[in-house]
Design a binder for these strands. Structure first.
Lengths: 162, 162
DNA sequence: CCTAACACATTGAGCGTTCAACTAATTCCG
DNA sequence: CGGAATTAGTTGAACGCTCAATGTGTTAGG
């Protein structure tokens, strides 16, 4: 692994602030979404992915990686969301093992309902606290981490065309 | 709240990278800790706080805020860690409602066992991917978020003496 | 071909977290 | 002082996630 065994004091400081910021931010986001829209944050992310793709449907596998879920997590989540009527499972034409997950109109509507409050929370608690340069910096830092953790296959993050 | 309703495209990009980085990083950390040391990441953080304080004991309430737990979460967590023998509950002398949580020798040992692997994972997946300037930037960004989210009362984060 | 290895997706048990409800002690204030 | 509001901490049910195991379809290699 890296250089020494321990963190420098600058790294320590950063690490602790990072942990605190993340937990506070994510807790806040989750609370807001759950309270105002009755969905946990990961479900929201799944709906977003589906809503952005042509046909509003995706193979379970691609939906999993693009929403950073394990397959298992996604299965459970889709089961719940199917009960809620937000999503529908279909068989895959080209691979009989596969399943395709399709966003329903009700699901799209739920997403449209949830989005404004969610975005406002993100803005208030993150972007309103940062300078424009810091927004860029945070993006670069995050992309470096994602790149290392194999998130290559995530989506346009690398911003080549498409 | 903030300016407009939506995020700029730069903010969008940053936000998605940030979400991906966080989930990938935290999942990795949790997996490593659980696998190698049999504890979830939040428990590790609690042990760390206790280990750093004189007497290795803290009021439940302070332990909760300093580890960014809800009271309820901490109660459940301490119950589990008490079963594991890592921690012990004592009555509070000055407030009969209160409880004090004390780190046992076994708990300290468990922490010492877990630390090297954990730190190595943090280093490999975060700090080794960043330039020294980015480490500073991430610290500043995180502190801005923490400050807004009322993490004032967390701990020396604001780096006044103490 | 036909089997062995692999990939897709689901399932259930176990666990940690949340939320709301609750007990009990303390503080505030008229 | 004495009652109301606040604060400390716990509890149980509901729920999402992880992990390991399973079923089933696909691909590769002898």
């Amino acid at each position: 692994m890296g250089h020494n065994q321990w963190l420098t004091s600058e790294e320590q400081r950063t690490w602790r602030a990072f942990l605190a910021a993340n937990r506070l931010l994510m807790d806040q986001l989750g609370r807001q979404l759950q309270h105002d829209s009755g969905m946990p944050h990961p479900y929201y992310e799944i709906l977003v992915r589906l809503s952005e793709v042509p046909g509003r449907e995706l193979r379970m596998s691609q939906l999993a990686t693009s929403s950073m879920s394990s397959r298992s997590r996604l299965s459970h989540a889709v089961a719940k969301m199917e009960e809620a009527g937000w999503v529908r499972r279909k068989e895959c034409e080209t691979d009989r093992r596969g399943a395709v997950c399709e966003l329903t109109d009700a699901g799209f509507a739920a997403l449209e309902d949830a989005a404004p409050g969610h975005v406002a929370t993100v803005r208030e608690n993150l972007f309103d606290q940062l300078t424009p340069e810091q927004v860029v910096q945070l993006g670069e830092i995050s992309e470096a981490v994602v790149k290392h953790l194999g998130g290559d296959k995530l989506w346009p993050l690398g911003d080549r065309q498409s």
